[in-house]
Design a protein around this nucleic acid. Structure first.
Lengths: 339, 339
DNA sequence: AAGGTTTTCGCAAAGCTTTGCGGAAATAAA
DNA sequence: TTTATTTCCGCAAAGCTTTGCGAAAACCTT
């Protein structure tokens, strides 16, 4: 046991000077003589002194912690975003506390409470797919606690956010399918109330219109963001008398699930059914056939989210800035028919 | 701005009593009269009081933080382990600070320093693939700062650790290949100094021996844990005059990379070359053909690591307990020849 | 009514750092 | 030698909580 860290007091005691002298010397205060400063710095170096962040936090009323809430930590999408946040946080001398809502609103609410108890200075969050009530965030806003959303946001709330341009992406995918000869393009979307679902639906509809295709509501399915639900949704599509010749999923999980199901039922990809997803997993390469997908700039999304956060902190007021990031369509074999 | 959190002082002031009275009332100290206690608790509830963790930390000399260092945060393997750690940490009222070494020893050293500066109470770490010097950990041990390793460990150091039984797993894989008619079983291993590489090599050799196969050193390649290096290693194996009829990789990244390369060169899996990996990614299912692999109990590894950590904390002494977790071989199509 | 008990609460210190202010010593000036 | 400056450093408070100890008030006893 013993003491693991030494304090200014220890240094002061060892040198026979006061604590304040040590403190000042360490930050080159002119009040302290050069020799004394030198002596103190030498000892501090030798003893490996670092200021106690708890004491500093108490004094400055700040913990240098950011709370991060993601729906799921075990996917490349979120862990990559987290990396981006972490990088910028580190540059500002902050560190992040990560919690997962597991796509549950209840857990999300608990996370907010727990993080606040831990005195994080603010929150960076991606909504759970269940979240349709926002009182737990409204409280934050009233108390002027910095809050930033990313990817999934609540558009009614005046909260800074970083978004990917899903509307543009779905439009591009739809057009891409059309150019490759697809006429019945299906779309497996996420829960209807999520902003990403809505935006992407708009892009999908716009894409259809521009291609002169008619919207068939049978080809648009909303489902929860789980493998099981996505498989069921795919089955539903494949049971249609007038089957789709292209399917794209609202995220990576759904795209992969659809691929499994399509293959299982013996359809050839892309010749029978073309496929595309929203993903930037490297696995889209190793999958067979390689999956056409729109790649999110995940790391950058994290960086931007953190930047917005620090703007909020510095301005000491709630800014309401939205950052929209472009998405690239990466065409691979799953959507290019050979015939 | 204003004050975002209220303190005992605020409550005391509002009620016209002293801080200590409030503090005692909140923990049902018998010195405080029932009515006073009731009144104080009611106000605390209303004002939503929670103790300031900074002040508590300063008092108790503990931050309730655990530092976690992983080689890479963007893989399911590590994020799943982190989830396990986080769960147990939460149960103990701790939270975790995650940093990534990016497989670099230099970054690992910096991480240790930074986490210590942040006054984490201890560290849970998985060594970077580069790490061959351990002075930064020896210092921790000397200072009796709790330390737990997982997966990749330093066997010279007396540090509690949780391991997966890779030796057993590689033996099983080797035998499985043999039973399926493979005679020239290749193994792409990781950096030679890593304990996981060594253990798995032993299992590989034992497996060969039990099957009556001879060890051909051409079939054992050490390479860095990156896609690029793994592709090169695979190319090297495929250039052999006496080619392998089975390949397994030391982790998921390598297995997938090998699959890409094998396919690219036009070999049929599993008929020409069988494949297996170490992974528990759900993507091993969606890959074509589905990849035979040993599944790590990642979440459990995280839990066990955290448990060891808290044993160290409670015992206030460095225990040296190793926990060995079994690994399951999950046979899929990539290793079952049809002929 | 006076002394003794019990009940109920406040003071102060400790944990660590920063910083305004005041004070002592040293130097310069008169 | 005395006064005025300058140089160098320490006191103390603030930020928040816990807790040993002491003290005031209320009660009971005789």
């Amino acid at each position: 046991m013993g003491k693991r860290h030494i304090s200014l007091k220890d240094l002061a005691h060892e040198l026979g000077v006061s604590i304040s002298t040590v403190s000042r010397a360490l930050k080159n205060h002119p009040d302290i003589s050069p020799e004394m400063t030198k002596k103190i710095k030498a000892l501090a170096e030798e003893r490996n002194y670092t200021p106690n962040p708890l004491a500093m936090g108490l004094l400055r009323q700040q913990t240098k912690m950011i709370g991060v809430i993601v729906p799921d930590i075990n996917t490349h999408f979120y862990s990559s975003i987290i990396s981006g946040i972490e990088k910028v946080a580190k540059e500002h001398g902050y560190f992040i506390v990560i919690t997962s809502s597991n796509e549950s609103m209840q857990k999300e609410i608990e996370s907010v409470e727990n993080l606040l108890k831990s005195r994080v200075e603010g929150l960076i969050v991606c909504l759970s797919q269940e979240t349709n009530d926002f009182t737990h965030f409204e409280k934050l806003i009233r108390n002027e606690i910095p809050l930033v959303f990313f990817d999934r946001v609540c558009e009614e709330l005046e909260v800074p956010a970083v978004l990917a341009n899903g509307q543009d992406a779905t439009k591009k995918i739809t057009q891409h399918f059309f150019k490759n000869g697809c006429k019945r393009i299906a779309y497996i979307s996420g829960p209807e109330h999520l902003n990403i679902s809505q935006n992407r639906k708009v892009g999908y509809l716009n894409g259809l219109k521009e291609c002169g295709l008619e919207y068939d509501q049978d080809l648009l399915i909303h489902c929860n963001l789980s493998i099981e639900d996505a498989k069921l949704a795919t089955q539903k599509l494949l049971r249609l008398k007038n089957k789709p010749d292209a399917i794209f999923g609202v995220n990576d999980t759904i795209a992969f699930a659809a691929m499994i199901e399509v293959k299982k039922q013996g359809y050839k990809i892309p010749d029978d059914i073309s496929l595309a997803g929203f993903t930037d997993e490297f696995h889209s390469i190793v999958v067979d056939p390689p999956l056409t997908s729109v790649s999110h700039p995940t790391f950058q999304m994290g960086e931007e989210a953190a930047k917005l956060f620090f703007e909020s902190i510095e301005k000491e007021t709630n800014i309401n800035k939205k950052v929209m990031l472009p998405i690239d369509l990466v065409v691979r074999e799953s959507s290019v028919k050979k015939q």
